[in-house]
Design a protein around this nucleic acid. Structure first.
Lengths: 123, 123
DNA sequence: AGTATATTTAAGTATTTGCTTAAATAATAT
DNA sequence: ATATTATTTAAGCAAATACTTAAATATACT
């Protein structure tokens, strides 16, 4: 691989590079987990769904489709991804499924919701 | 469009739905801006780069490639996206370009870095 | 000027994503 | 049982993503 010959071999700070490699190695689990969540929240549609669930507590796919003006299957498929990732959960009431956020302590999503509100005030 | 006929028309809480529509409308700017940032941070490679820049202050593409064990062009292309989005900036020193985070107050990235550290402790 | 280094850019391609439409489940109502 | 409603699942497809390799820029060195 051409990876072997880079500027590093000549004059870079080797100490810094190995320190960084260690840092990444040590946080590899959280980096993977957090990037998974961010990749979900990084879709504008899904961010809106998460944002709404945070405010409204729970919503059904049908209502979400109505609010976001998109098809029910499209919403359902976004929901599935978030459910598979364990960031939302469902409760059935008759024919209707209500989805809500899975609450947790060190939740990166809370910071995101705060940022959305904060930025709104600023604008 | 089939959007017109959903469960909403029959028995849903119309008040809730219009309230939600308004909420989304009101936050539409921040939702778009934040989801853009999250979609960038939602790539494991880019999250690692951002995480490293936060710790090391600045790094060159070559070193990042070395640390993450990937090709320089691949790194460069990730960097370009983040630069285009205005979340990182560059400083030239001779042939070397040093990249660093654009610092700001209500930065959603700070919360993310905290979550990465917090989760590491927990694990 | 000519060569080497650091980086970017471009072209090509395989994979992933996000919708659409149609069909399948699941619960309810008649 | 049959039909209706809420939702999911599957198949298909266009667009976006993330690499690869090769070529182009930019700065430094001789």
């Amino acid at each position: 691989m051409s990876l072997e010959i880079t500027c590093t071999r000549n004059e870079a700070d080797k100490k810094q590079i190995s320190r960084c490699k260690e840092t990444i190695e040590n946080s590899s689990g959280s980096l993977e987990a957090i990037s998974k969540i961010l990749s979900l929240a990084g879709s504008e549609v899904r961010l809106k769904i998460l944002f709404l669930l945070n405010i409204e507590n729970e919503l059904c796919p049908c209502d979400i489709a109505d609010i976001l003006e998109m098809s029910v299957p499209a919403v359902s498929q976004h929901i599935r991804k978030m459910k598979d990732a364990g960031i939302i959960l469902s409760r059935r009431e008759g024919q209707t499924l209500y989805y809500s956020l899975v609450k947790s302590e060190d939740n990166v999503l809370n910071g995101i919701f705060n940022s959305i509100s904060a930025r709104k005030k600023t604008a």
